[in-house]
Every structure is written in structure tokens, then in C-alpha cells.
Design a protein around this nucleic acid. Structure first.
Length: 642
RNA sequence: GGCGAUGUAGCUCAGCUGGUUAGAGCAUACGGCUCAUAUCCGUAGUGUCCGGGGUUCAAGUCCCUGCAUCGCCA
């Protein structure tokens, strides 16, 4: 079995971001995994460089189009090594051989009658680079770009996509794993349940010249998707390379959900028309949000791969992205979440386990892999768990369940930590009579770590390298050669390296490692992180801004049982909140309803008498008198107070 | 509007074809150890399994319905 795995070729109208990096990291990890499994693997990525939007972006940047695409393409190419992403080929759609292949294919499909010339009139949106239907419009505008489309009548070339619709439906149904995860297969099938329109595959040169000329009509260039998808073929030498057919048989694509339609529908029908078999599988992943907000340039919260690498290093980023997202679903990125993973999973669990194990080998076994003796039940348990881990890891990786695969590894890491406490090697070391048992325990730890190294290798290649070197064993090359128990040779020198992963301090004064530019509306929260360092009793304005004071309207109020001081209030501010207020001695529940009060809305929720309070009501107190804050007039619930 | 998905502990999620007291990690509290990166181990929890009906001896798990969120399509 061989695998030919691709990322999308990235559109060079913008710089690389987290989403691109995720696609590429998955592809790289899967490739490394399959190499470990002993398969032949080819990994391709690249850049997509034609189309109207590129021309616009170049103009905006004040560069010649070619110059512009060269630059951005390079940004992509250069982003990957830092993340330990090592493609075998980086293809560009402006490569001469790609252009030639696209033209050959067009000619062939044209000659066989699957491309025809026709007139089309419709509403064209430049931003979308496509025609919109009447129903799509919102108030006469494109729903995405909010600009009115142009009424255009054009003659164009069309690809007879509809001709292959039924074939595609059958193929998807006959091959349940063709598009995964299932939700995306269903999406494609649901789209195919309606009649397909033929695909317009040309753009008149009067409008666009930055594209591949149609070989049979030089007044047109090729529509960017028809051009771009073919990269998957040109990248492995279609049509002349003798190895092509064999490589293509193992073709699998990784994409993000936004380009499902071109890959799930255009591409298989195109391949069919060319007389080629469809790709083997399409793996569709979700989006990374940033702090639960959609990542977008206009919001300004785009996460750049380069910054992440600089802040955390390739292995941590790779681990985080694979561990945190379940493949196919959306997930949220935040520096807090990443630091939490780094500290708990990488530093405390794996890093510390590795460190304490090697230190003990140093202290109690003179830095050499000890010779194990007879084993107890506990020893066998650990060994069996480690062996099982390797199988489980493989099962989950095969299904693109990266987070579960890693979970399986961390289960063994946890078990090993427990094993240490249960056996207390430092106690065994006190009595020479226990030396055999001590050696056995240490050996079992080292072996477990070796198997952990094997599994994490595809995900964290740099860490695996360090660990293998420290254990005095080979960098794992295949599962077949490394997944048995007991491969470490007694007597081998062990060399403890520096910490694998440092603990990261969240509350350090320095800037957060990767700057998160939050949407403007969230600025207030952002500033919470700045600490009021100098304590001169005065706060600056920025500190004051941390308070989210709002007007809240009380909707319901009731006494909290067993407390004579607390009232449980439901307020609108403007969303519904529960607030527990210590005012029961001064106000009756009935008289609270309908009152407007001022609350602190961003107080950490706290449980009072079993009720979670999401805020605090402001009141003035003088001795035994307590008076609620109030406004001199009525305002809408939720109004800001400042 | 049509189709589909999702809604489980403070947070992120597991819970396959219905079957014993609903789980894991993180966070929290308390206790223990000292080999270790102030790490690790143990203990303690809290859940109207979105709401409402129904099928069943038995439902988080099946059916109907409502609500919320999201996706695709129109």
C-alpha cells in the first residue's frame, strides 16, 4: 500500500494562518505515521496562484502579479519547515509543466465533447468570482460581500458536470469512506440530490488575463478551480511519469470544509471525464476559531504560524492542534488553552515522567539501562498497557482520530507515573536486597518511555528524537521493528537531556506569547490581564475600564433557604443572569422585582449557598443601613455604566 | 423555508447496536510522597444527561414534539 497525501494548494491572496498550518500539520503527521507503518508515502502541498482575486491583491500590494504570487508563495513554502512540516513536493499552479498539463486535459475533455460553448447571463459577483442566483441576494447585494453583483451576459465554456452526477452518487454510496467524516459525505450527497448544473470553466480575457489560456480558444482563460484541482495530478507527473498510475491509486486529499464542493463534486467528475479513477479518500476538517470568535482579517485576530512557532516551538503547536480538535469539527484556539496543554500534558505528565525516570536511572543504576529480573504483576500490567497503547494509537490514527490516539498515549504516561509511586524506587534503593526489583522497575519505565517515543514520533518528531537519543535507542523507523516489548539493551548508556518541555507561566508580566488581537468589542476583557502593579492606592483609567458595570433589571427575586441575608435575583442585563445579593435583611423579594440596579457584570462567578452568582449588585452601606444603587431615571436593561 | 448535525459535571468532551450507583481530562479542595520540570500519587465532590410527551420490565441511548446553536441548500 502506498499513500499520496495532499493538502490543498493554498490561495495566495493572503498570508498563511492557523488554518493552513493545521491542514499541513495533519498531512505531515499522517505521512510520518504511514512511513512508520512501513508504507511508501508522498506528501504534496503548494500554492494556487491564478484568478481575479490574486490580481486584485497584487494591485493592492502595488506589485506586478507575478512578483506578488512569487512572494506569497514563498511565505507558504517558508512557513512549513518551522513547524517540522516536510512535504516532498511544493507545487505552484504557475509552474510551466502544470500549465501544460491543464491545457492538455482541457483539450482532451473538449475533444471528447464534455466541454461546450454557451451563452450565460446572470448576476456576477467579483468577490465570489462566480454568478449568484437571484435567491441568494440579500437586499440586492451579494450576501458575503455586501456589494451589488453585475448583470453580465457572457459566452463561456461549460463542463458537462451533470453528465457524471449519477455516477458520482453511486460512487459515494458504494464507497462509504470516500468522503469522511460522515457529516461531509452527507452534505455532498444532499447537494447531489438536486440536479447539478454544468460548471462554467472559462473566463473571457476581456475580464481576466491572469490564468491559463484555453488551448482551443485563446479569448478565454481557465476558471481557477478547474486549473487548481489538477495540481494533484501534475504534482506526480501526470500523464507521462511511469509511476503515476500507482501513486494516483493511493491519492488522498486533506481539505478544510470551505472547499468541500470543489473537492467533493467538481473534482471527481473532472477525473471521471478525464478517464481517471477518483481519488481514494477526501478528509475534511473544520475551522479553528480564536477565542471562540471566527478568525478573520477584518476582525484582526488571525493567528500566524510563524508567531506560534516562535512562542511555543513546533512540537507543542503540533501536539496542541492535534490533541485539541476532533477531526472534522470546529475548535477554538487560545493561548490559555495552549499553555494549559503545554503545562499539564507536556511538562507535568510527559516531560516530568521522562525527567524523573532518567534521573533515577542515573542515581540508582549508574546511567545505564539496567538488566531486568523477574517480574511482578505490576510490571506486567505496565508492559501490557504499553503494548496495547501502540495498537490503540494505530487504530485511532487510521481513522484520523488524532485526539483519541494521543489520549491513548497519555493514559500510559499516567499509568507509568502511578507505577513509580507504587514501586517507590527510592525506597528499593535503600536496601541492596531489592536490587533486582529496582532494576526491573527502572527497565519497565524506560521501555514504556521507548514505546511512548514511538507513538509520538509522527506528532512530535523533535521530541521523539531527543527521547530516543536519551534512551540510547534508534529513532523509530517502523512500528514493525519497534513495537515489541524489551528492545532496550541492558548496559546501554542513558544520557539525560535538558527538560523536554518548560513549564510556561501564565501570569508572568511579559506579553502573552502569541498576541491575540481580539475583536474591538472584547477589548475590555483583554485589558483585564494588565495588572495594577504599582500600588499607590490610585488606579489608572485602564484599570477602571476593567469593571464591566451595567444596569440590570430585576425580573424575579426569592429568598435563599437557610440564609437570612441572601436573595437570589434573576436580572436582565441585557441577557438573563442569576445574582445572589446579601440584601435580604434590607429588602423584601417582592419589592425587588422591576427595580433597576447597577451590577458588576464581569465578576468571576461564585457559589453562595449552593447558588452560582454571576455578578454583584452595588449598594451603599452605612452601619446597619443598606441602600441599593439606583439611577435617577429608567434606562434600557444592560446599559453600560461608566 | 428545506435537509442535516449538535445540545451530558465550572470548562473541553467520552458514552457502540437501550440494561447494574452516568464517565475522562482540566480547574477546585484536602491529604500523602520526595525520584522528578513547586512536579507526582490518593481522596472529595457537584450533573433536571436542553424542555415536554411517549414506547419499554428498563432510555443519556429509541419515537414524537418544542427550544437553542451550527452547517449545507434555496
Amino acid at each position: 500500500m502506498s499513500l499520496y497525501l495532499t493538502t490543498p494548494i493554498f490561495y495566495v491572496n493572503a498570508q498563511p494562518h492557523l488554518g493552513h498550518a493545521y491542514s499541513a500539520i495533519i498531512a505531515d503527521t499522517v505521512c510520518r505515521y504511514h512511513r512508520l507503518a512501513g508504507e511508501e508515502v508522498r506528501f504534496q502541498t503548494g500554492s494556487d496562484e491564478h484568478g481575479e482575486k490574486i490580481v486584485e491583491a497584487a494591485e493592492k500590494a502595488g506589485l506586478a502579479t507575478k512578483e506578488y504570487v512569487d512572494q506569497i508563495s514563498n511565505l507558504f513554502r517558508e512557513a512549513w519547515p518551522g513547524l517540522a512540516i516536510e512535504p516532498d513536493n511544493f507545487i505552484r499552479t504557475t509552474d510551466p509543466n502544470h500549465i501544460k498539463t491543464v491545457q492538455d486535459i482541457l483539450q482532451k475533455v473538449y475533444d471528447q465533447g464534455d466541454i461546450y460553448f454557451s451563452e450565460y447571463s446572470g448576476l456576477y459577483c467579483k468577490g465570489c468570482e462566480r454568478f449568484l442566483t437571484e435567491k441568494e441576494l440579500v437586499g440586492g447585494n451579494c450576501p458575503d460581500h455586501l456589494t451589488p453583483p453585475d448583470a453580465v451576459t457572457e459566452q463561456n465554456y461549460f463542463f458537462k458536470m451533470s453528465k457524471y452526477q449519477q455516477w458520482l452518487i453511486d460512487h459515494i454510496k458504494d464507497n462509504p469512506e470516500f468522503i469522511t467524516p460522515e457529516r461531509y459525505k452527507n452534505e455532498v450527497l444532499s447537494f447531489l440530490s438536486e440536479p447539478l448544473e454544468d460548471l462554467c470553466i472559462s473566463r473571457p480575457t476581456s475580464r481576466l488575463t491572469w490564468g491559463i489560456a484555453l488551448p482551443f480558444d485563446d479569448k478565454f482563460v481557465t476558471y481557477v478551480w478547474f486549473d487548481a484541482l489538477i495540481n494533484y495530478l501534475t504534482g506526480i507527473g501526470y500523464p507521462d511519469d511511469p509511476g503515476f498510475a500507482q501513486q494516483w491509486a493511493g491519492a488522498e486529499h486533506i481539505i478544510a470544509k470551505d472547499i468541500l464542493k470543489p473537492h467533493g463534486i467538481f473534482w471527481p467528475t473532472m477525473l471521471k471525464a478525464m478517464g481517471l479513477p477518483p481519488y481514494r479518500k477526501l478528509h475534511v476538517h473544520g475551522y479553528w476559531n480564536v477565542n471562540d470568535t471566527k478568525m478573520s482579517k477584518s476582525i484582526g485576530n488571525v493567528v500566524r504560524p510563524g508567531e506560534m512557532v516562535e512562542a511555543y516551538g513546533a512540537d507543542t503547536v503540533r501536539y496542541f492542534l492535534l490533541r485539541e480538535m476532533s477531526f472534522g469539527l470546529d475548535s477554538s484556539f487560545s493561548n490559555e488553552a495552549l499553555v494549559a496543554r503545554q503545562n499539564s500534558d507536556l511538562a507535568n505528565d510527559l516531560g516530568n515522567l521522562f525527567s524523573r525516570s532518567l534521573t533515577m536511572v542515573g542515581k540508582f543504576a549508574a546511567d545505564k539501562t539496567p538488566q531486568p529480573g523477574s517480574t511482578s504483576e505490576k510490571d506486567t500490567e505496565l508492559a501490557e498497557a504499553a503494548i496495547r497503547m501502540v495498537t490503540e494509537f494505530q487504530n485511532q490514527m487510521e481513522q484520523y482520530n488524532f485526539h483519541r490516539a494521543l489520549q491513548a498515549v497519555w493514559e500510559v504516561i499516567g499509568r507509568a507515573n502511578r507505577y513509580i509511586v507504587e514501586n517507590a524506587p527510592w525506597e528499593l534503593a535503600k536496601d541492596p536486597a531489592n536490587s533486582e526489583q529496582l532494576a526491573t522497575v527502572l527497565y519497565h519505565l524506560l521501555e514504556s518511555l521507548r514505546l511512548v517515543t514511538l507513538c509520538i514520533q509522527p506528532v512530535m518528531p523533535e521530541t521523539a528524537k531527543k527521547m530516543a537519543a536519551a534512551l540510547g535507542t534508534d529513532y523509530p523507523a517502523t512500528f514493525a521493528d519497534h513495537s515489541q516489548w524489551g528492545l532496550l539493551k541492558p548496559g546501554t548508556a542513558i544520557t539525560k537531556p535538558d527538560s523536554l518541555f518548560p513549564r510556561l507561566e501564565k501570569k508572568k508580566k511579559g506579553e502573552p506569547a502569541v498576541k491575540e488581537q481580539k475583536p474591538a468589542k472584547d477589548k475590555k476583557n483583554d485589558k483585564q490581564k494588565e495588572s495594577a502593579n504599582e500600588n499607590d492606592g490610585l488606579m489608572n483609567f485602564a484599570d477602571f475600564q476593567k469593571f464591566d458595570l451595567r444596569v440590570a433589571e430585576v425580573v424575579t427575586a426569592e429568598r435563599i433557604k437557610k440564609s437570612d441575608r441572601l436573595l437570589k435575583l434573576t436580572v436582565m442585563a441585557p441577557e438573563e443572569r442569576t445574582i445572589v445579593a446579601g440584601i435580604a435583611e434590607h429588602y423584601q423579594p417582592e419589592e425587588m422585582v422591576g427595580k433597576q440596579v447597577i451590577i458588576v457584570a464581569n465578576l468571576k462567578p461564585a457559589k453562595l449557598m449552593g447558588v452560582t452568582s454571576q455578578g454583584m449588585v452595588l449598594a451603599a452601606k452605612d452601619g446597619k443601613t443598606l441602600v441599593l444603587s439606583a439611577l435617577s431615571d429608567t434606562v434600557p436593561a444592560g446599559s453600560k455604566v461608566s
